[in-house]
Design a protein around this nucleic acid. Structure first.
Lengths: 268, 268
DNA sequence: TCATTTTCAATCAAAAACGCGCACAATGCA
DNA sequence: TGCATTGTGCGCGTTTTTGATTGAAAATGA
C-alpha cells in the first residue's frame, strides 16, 4: 500500500462520511494505527482535512456554515436592493389564486417575502423557497421529484421523465447568470437542466435579472431571447440593452428600488 | 462514539426542538451526563448553541411563527423514549451507502438523529425529515413530486403516475396508526395514499410501531400483515402480540429503551 | 421561608488516543 | 552490491477523554 494511495483513500473516506475513526481507516487501508495517524497529521497540515481526536473529518463541514446559515449567503448580499425590488415587481404581476413556477436562485428567492401575504399555487424546484413559503405563508407549495443538490439548493431528478410534467402555470419566474443578445445564459450545467425542465410548463416566461446581468457572459446558453416574454430589471439598465430587449419583442419592467434600500445600493 | 460525532448529533437534536435536556442527549448518544455537559459547554463557547439550565437550545430562535406550529409537536412528545429507541434500532439496520425510504411520521422522524452521522441515500415524502437531513447530515436526500400537505407534513402528488417510481431501496421504514391481526392501519386517507405509493419500492418493509400501536384500531387498512417483513417495537409488547407477529413470519425487533429515558416513560 | 429535588461543577481513576523513539523492511541510487 | 532514504510497525510513557462520585448551587413546591 503506497502512501499516496492511502492518502487518496483517507480523503475519499472523509468526504463520504461525516467522520471517520482511525480504526475505520486501518480497516480500509490495512495498515497500522500509527501510520494512519501520521497520514492524518500530514493531511491536516496540508489542510486537506481536519484532524480530530479519534479520527478525522472533512474540512468545513457544510451543515454548520453553508446551508444552514441562510440560503446562498454569499450571493445573497450582492445587489440585494435591486434583487428585492425586482422580486417585488415580479410578485406584483401575480394575484391570489394564480399558479406560478419559481425557479431556484438568489434573485427569485427574494420573491418569498412579498409572497408571504399571498395565497397562490407555487411550484418550485428550490428547497429554500419551498421551506420559506411553507413556514411563512399560506401558499400552496408544490415540488418536483428528485435529489436535493446541496450546492445549488435545488431539487432535480436524474430522470428525464420525472418532474413537473403535470403542473402548468400562468407564469414561470427565473433568474439567470447572464442575459445577452444570444439569449439567457446560466453558469451551472445542473441549473441548465433544472431550468430546461420547467420552461414550457408556463404560458409566460419572466426573467428576473438585475442590470449587472447584462454584462455577464457564460458558456451555457439556456434559451434564445425570443422564448422570453418579460424581463424585470432595475434602473441601472442601459438604453441600448433596453432597445435590444424591445427589439426582441420582450416586455421590459424596470423595478423602482425602495427608498430605504437606496443607501444599501450606494454602499456596495 | 467520537466527539465530533456527538457534537453533530447534539446540534441535530437542538435544531429540531426548542430545547433538549441533558438526559435526552444522553439517550441519543449513549454517553454519560458529564460528557454531554462538557460537550454543551464546548458548543456553547463555539457559539453553536446556547447553554441553558437542564440542557441546551438553538442559538437562532426558531423563525417559524404561528403557521408552522407543527401538528407534529403534539405527537412529538408522546412515547418519545420508545420512539427514539425504535428509531435508533431502525437506523442500526442500515449502513453507509444504503438506499432507504422513510415514510413521514413522528416515529420515523426520530431516525434523523442517528442518521446525522450516516452517509446514505434517503428517499422521503416527509418535508421535515428532508429538511433536517439536508441541514444536519451528509446524506443524499431525494423527494417525490407533489404538493406539500401542511397538516400531515408530507409531499404527495395528486397524480398517480408521479412520484417515486424510479427509486428502489433496500428498505422502507414507516410508522402507522395501528397494527393488528388484519394488518397495518392508518388514520388519514392522505397518509394511506402516500404510503401505498411507496410500498413496493423497497425489498424489505420495516414498520416502526411502539407497543401502544398494537391496541389502536382504525378504519383504514393499509396492507395485510404478510406484506410486512420486520416490525420494530419496544419492550412493552405483549406476548400474544409477539406470537401473532411471529405467526405471520415477521421478524420482530424489540428496541432497548435507554436507561436515562426510562424515567420519562414512567412519567407518562 | 425552608425542605426537597434537580442540575451543575469539581475531582479522580480508568481507559482510550496520541506521540516519540527505535528497529526493521522496502526502495532508490551509485 | 553497498549505502542512504523513506516508510512502517511496535513498545512505552504522556496526554486527553470519559464516567462515577460528591458536594454546591439552583429551581421547585408547600
Amino acid at each position: 500500500m503506497l502512501e499516496t494511495e492511502r492518502h487518496r483513500i483517507i480523503l475519499s473516506a472523509v468526504q463520504e462520511r461525516p467522520v471517520v475513526t482511525v480504526a475505520d481507516l486501518c480497516a480500509l487501508t490495512g495498515v497500522s494505527e500509527a501510520t494512519i495517524r501520521r497520514d492524518i497529521g500530514q493531511l491536516h497540515l496540508a489542510k486537506k482535512l481536519r484532524r480530530v481526536r479519534g479520527g478525522a473529518e472533512a474540512i468545513a463541514p457544510p451543515q454548520f456554515v453553508g446551508i444552514n446559515a441562510r440560503p446562498f449567503a454569499v450571493n445573497q448580499t450582492l445587489h440585494i436592493a435591486e434583487k428585492r425590488a425586482i422580486a417585488q415587481a415580479a410578485v406584483d404581476l401575480c394575484e391570489d389564486g394564480d399558479a406560478i413556477i419559481i425557479n431556484g436562485g438568489t434573485t427569485t428567492f427574494q420573491m418569498v417575502h412579498p409572497l408571504a401575504t399571498k395565497r397562490m399555487q407555487v411550484f418550485t424546484n428550490s428547497f429554500p423557497i419551498a421551506e420559506h413559503l411553507l413556514k411563512q405563508s399560506k401558499n400552496t407549495v408544490l415540488l418536483p421529484a428528485g435529489a436535493i443538490y446541496r450546492e445549488q439548493n435545488i431539487i432535480l431528478s436524474p430522470f428525464d421523465a420525472d418532474g413537473s410534467s403535470h403542473f402548468y402555470a400562468k407564469r414561470m419566474f427565473m433568474g439567470c447568470r447572464g442575459l445577452g443578445p444570444l439569449g439567457l445564459m446560466e453558469g451551472d450545467p445542473l441549473l441548465v437542466q433544472a431550468e430546461q425542465k420547467l420552461i414550457g410548463q408556463a404560458d409566460e416566461l419572466v426573467v428576473l435579472a438585475d442590470s449587472s446581468k447584462f454584462h455577464q457572459r457564460s458558456s451555457l446558453l439556456l434559451c434564445p431571447l425570443n422564448r422570453i416574454h418579460t424581463v424585470i430589471t432595475d434602473d441601472g439598465i442601459e438604453d441600448r440593452t433596453a432597445s435590444m430587449l424591445e427589439a426582441a419583442d420582450i416586455r421590459l419592467i424596470v423595478a423602482e428600488i425602495a427608498a430605504s434600500d437606496r443607501q444599501k445600493r450606494a454602499e456596495e
